[in-house]
Write a protein that binds this DNA or RNA. Sequence first.
DNA 1: ACGAAGCTTCAAGAAAATTTGAAGAAACTG
DNA 2: CAGTTTCTTCAAATTTTCTTGAAGCTTCGT
Lengths: 192, 192
Amino acid sequence: MSTAAVKQQESNDSEPLWRQAELRAAEAIGRLMEFWGFRRHMGRLWTILYLSPEPLTTAELSETLQISSSAVSLSLGDLVRWGAVRKTWRPGERKDFYEAESSVWKLLRRVYERRELNLIREANDALSEAQQALESVRGGLGAAERRRVDFMRKRLSRLSALSRAGERLVHLLVAGRAINPSELRSAEEDDQ
Amino acid sequence: MSTAAVKQQESNDSEPLWRQAELRAAEAIGRLMEFWGFRRHMGRLWTILYLSPEPLTTAELSETLQISSSAVSLSLGDLVRWGAVRKTWRPGERKDFYEAESSVWKLLRRVYERRELNLIREANDALSEAQQALESVRGGLGAAERRRVDFMRKRLSRLSALSRAGERLVHLLVAGRAINPSELRSAEEDDQ
DNA sequence: ACGAAGCTTCAAGAAAATTTGAAGAAACTG
DNA sequence: CAGTTTCTTCAAATTTTCTTGAAGCTTCGT
């Protein structure tokens, strides 16, 4: 009864037979993107567009994925801002059409460039500030506390070295150059 | 007189002067980890431990970060499970003490190995299923729909190729070997 | 210029996650 | 072995994030 039910469902709704496969792929990519820090809808929408031979309208998207048109608009806007989806225009049509940027590599690069690098830099700044704060405080401490603070300073500088190394690696990645992760490892090989 | 003032400051809050810097660093790393898909507390706790010359108790941690002991226990448990923190034991002490795994490189490797690889594999499986579903449906379609499905199949196989390439890269990364991101790029260079 | 169609933004509601206090287990001490 | 101390688990509550329907804008055709 369950397999029959599926067949029925497919033809009853006047849904193409491949819709289910499409949704499954969209879901997989959606999860991947969610895990990567984006909204799940972004991945789903992008996938639907990526699998479509021609541009789609927001109405088609919201119908396919069964989400409200405002949700489509929201996530689609993000996708456009990330360059993952382009607005296209059709002569004689009033609605906007959307198509996926089909070079995943380009997308990855852009995200790393805009987002990951920023993130690392912010962490870096915060670490530097913390280090400076420690240094400025160090003078007025007794011997025991000074030892303590020196330990922290050593550790903080290791973290800084790491995050600078990470920044460098992402830079290389974005430039499409080869990367050697051992740089990360060696960034923390000064003391034990 | 100025040293006296500093001393006062120290004792008024009964907080060491460097506490603030420590918290700032913890916050920075916490954000980084949150962005990376972990609970923020995990990063904060790890950082406090990493910056401490000696192991700390849960009580000290919850006091330092101002979070409940149950939250400490929860996130600390995760950290131990990820190998980011070790339980240590002190003769004569009843409480457990915790210390940070100080090799960040080891940690990164472990996370990529356990989590990212799994994630990619899951996506891969879902994509394969979708592809198979399309193939099994292809027979019963008219010409137009068949063309449509063939387009999807081509795109899906590109996604598969990409994610297999990604899997390979992560493998290399985990093994500490050099990586060339151009493998990703070339994974989608069959058609336009 | 007016009306309609489509897109976006917003505030309210729903869902999901994190956080916590309290209760339960486990481990140690006297 | 009873009584503590410490750690963990759980359900309730809070906070945060997501989703939606409605209202506001903009653009286009007449």
